[in-house]
Simulated assay, not measured.
Amino acid sequence: MRGHFRYSVWDPFLIISQILTIQAIFYVSLGALIFITDIISGYSQSLDQIFLHKAVSVKDLHGRCLAGSFILNSLCGSVALWYFVQRTKLCLDFTATAHLIHLILCWWYSASFPSTFSWWLLNIICVTIMCVCGEFLCMRTEMKAIPLSLGAKADL
C-alpha cells in the first residue's frame, strides 16, 4: 500500500459495472418520478418526457413538474454515487458520464441535437446538484474516524 489510504487498482470491470449501475438508477428513479408526476397531473406517459429535449419547458405546468422530477432525480443520483461509488474524487466523473450518456441517448432518440435553453440549463443544474450532493455524502463517509482499538480492552 506504501503511503496510500486506499489500495487502488485499475479494475475496468468494476468501473463499467458502476457506470451501468449509476445509469440504471438514473433512469429507473427518473421514470418513477415522472410516473408519479404524470399520475398527479393526469398527463399520459411517454418516453418523450425522458428523452425529448423539447418536453422540458418552463412555460407550462407539466414542463415545470418534469423539470422538478429531473432535479429530484439528481438527489437520487447523489445517493447512488454515495452507495456505489463511495469516493469523493470520482463523483464528478460518474456524474458527467451519466449525463453524457443521457445527452447521447436524447440526441439519438429525437434525431436532433438538444437545442433548447431550458434543457441545457436543467441539465447543468442537475449535474451540479448530483455532483455536489454526492461529494458531500461521500466526504462525510470518508471523514469518519477510523477505529484504532478493535475490541481489545485497554489495561490502565
Rank of each mutant, 00 (worst) to 15 (best):
V85N: 07
Q86M: 15
I40K: 08
G151D: 13
A67D: 01
S41I: 07
G42N: 01
I50M: 08
H102L: 09
H62L: 13
I125C: 05
K153R: 08
M130H: 11
I25E: 06
L150T: 15
A32Q: 02
Q23S: 07
R64F: 04
V58E: 05
Q23P: 07
T116W: 03
A24K: 06
L47F: 11
S57Y: 08
S57P: 07
Y109A: 03
D60M: 03
A67T: 01
S118K: 05
L72E: 05
T88I: 04
I146M: 13
M139C: 14
I22G: 00
L103P: 15
C65H: 00
G134N: 10
F35M: 04
C106S: 10
S112R: 00
T95H: 14
I34G: 02
L137A: 06
E135K: 04
T116R: 04
S115H: 10
C106E: 08
A24P: 10
F70D: 05
D38P: 03
W119P: 03
V58C: 09
S29L: 12
T116S: 05
I129A: 04
K153A: 00
L100R: 08
S41K: 04
A98Y: 13
Y83V: 10
I19Y: 08
F35T: 04
M130Y: 01
I40A: 05
V79D: 01
A154I: 15
E135C: 08
V85E: 05
L90N: 15
C106M: 10
Y83L: 06
G77P: 01
Y109G: 03
L148T: 14
S29H: 11
A32Y: 06
Y83P: 14
S46A: 02
G63V: 00
A145E: 13
G77W: 06
I50F: 02
I104R: 07
S149Q: 08
A32K: 03
A67M: 08
L33I: 14
T128M: 00
A145R: 13
S29T: 14
A98L: 14
Q49A: 11
L122R: 10
I124C: 10
L61R: 11
S115N: 09
C138H: 01
T128P: 02
S41P: 02
F26K: 09
I101R: 09
G42A: 03
V28H: 04
L122W: 09
H99F: 15
A24S: 09
C126G: 01
T116I: 09
L122T: 03
F51N: 07
